[in-house]
Design a protein around this nucleic acid. Structure first.
Lengths: 183, 183
DNA sequence: TAGTTATTAATCACTGTGTTGATTAACTCT
DNA sequence: AGAGTTAATCAACACAGTGATTAATAACTA
């Protein structure tokens, strides 16, 4: 998995870009390998050399984005102790906004909810769960409620054309979650 | 669209049951018309006489469930004024639990999120929105948060094996939403 | 029971799949 | 810059599922 060869990089990028564009137009289940390759000007055999199908390709793109978001957070020297949750949220939303083209496809209401869940769980675990008291009876349900609620907020954000600033969204999200956790 | 002919009823039921069973095992995009028909002991041409594809079939099943839930609510003479929200929620959850076989497939985390959204929006609009004050600035985001949050609760319910009673779930849901709306 | 109609089995052309082996082109490393 | 490596291409392949169409048959309604 060296991937230093320029040909590999080029092919993979062409395939990914083609796929993202088609994903804006139709559901992943309706996308064929054939049309991905035609748009990417890449032979079908080349696709199969790198990916097994469109779902595996999506998985690769999602993993990449997830890593990038994590890496981006590491650039800041945050303490994940609840003292600056709003700032962490703001940085994450900033990154998403800065990479709107791909994030829109992955995080809007047509995107992969499993990936969104994974992402939100990571954020929530980092930002909130450590300092939120746990009532064992209904805490699992509350957790599920909040995680899905956050997915709803982000999807709404994209539905709105990403007009709201990252900071505003961070403050709003923080307030809602903070209020809930007082139950 | 008379559907009085027993042959039609039988064919459609066989197809639906077969489909639901297969849907427990794999994603809808991986399901072929061929295998639905083989399991249903129905000719492929019969399938196409009633449905255009697996997605159209799912749509039919979803519409049917949605109607049934609404009809079920009409059996009770509720006032939708916020005075008995918990009881309405309980009846809905009761119905879902009573029809667990099909509801599990449609409402779990592998189910169709668009349908779940439609269902929750209906419930929320009936039970809550009429008597909740609207702050125009962030109310849309709050709405999206709550709707998705409720989806999360129901999915968690199924993930848990539907052990919690409908009443408990209703009370819990009511408390969370009620608390949020005080923001 | 007569008349209607849903279902069936057997076709059809077509599209996309995943793989293969030989050829060509592009890259890396010294 | 050149040798050796390897990725990409191309054509061909068998295969599976699609959606539609036919005539024959079976099951229904009234």
């Amino acid at each position: 998995m060296s991937n230093i060869d320029k040909r590999i990089i080029n092919s993979k990028n062409a395939i990914k870009n083609s796929f993202i564009e088609i994903l804006k137009l139709k559901d992943i289940s309706k996308i064929t390998i054939k049309e991905i390759c035609e748009r990417a000007n890449v032979n079908r055999a080349t696709f199969y050399a790198h990916y097994s199908n469109q779902y595996n390709l999506l998985e690769n793109i999602e993993d990449e984005l997830f890593l990038n978001i994590k890496e981006n957070l590491n650039n800041y020297s945050f303490k994940f102790d609840g003292s600056n949750t709003i700032h962490i949220l703001e940085k994450i939303f900033d990154y998403i906004k800065a990479n709107e083209n791909i994030c829109n496809v992955l995080l809007n209401d047509k995107g992969d909810i499993d990936f969104q869940k994974k992402l939100i769980c990571f954020i929530y675990d980092e930002c909130f769960s450590k300092w939120v008291c746990k009532d064992s009876e209904s805490s699992d349900y509350l957790y599920s409620f909040v995680v899905y609620g956050c997915i709803g907020i982000i999807q709404k954000w994209f539905d709105d054309g990403v007009k709201k600033s990252a900071k505003d969204l961070a403050v709003m999200t923080y307030n809602i979650i903070n209020n809930i956790n007082k139950i």
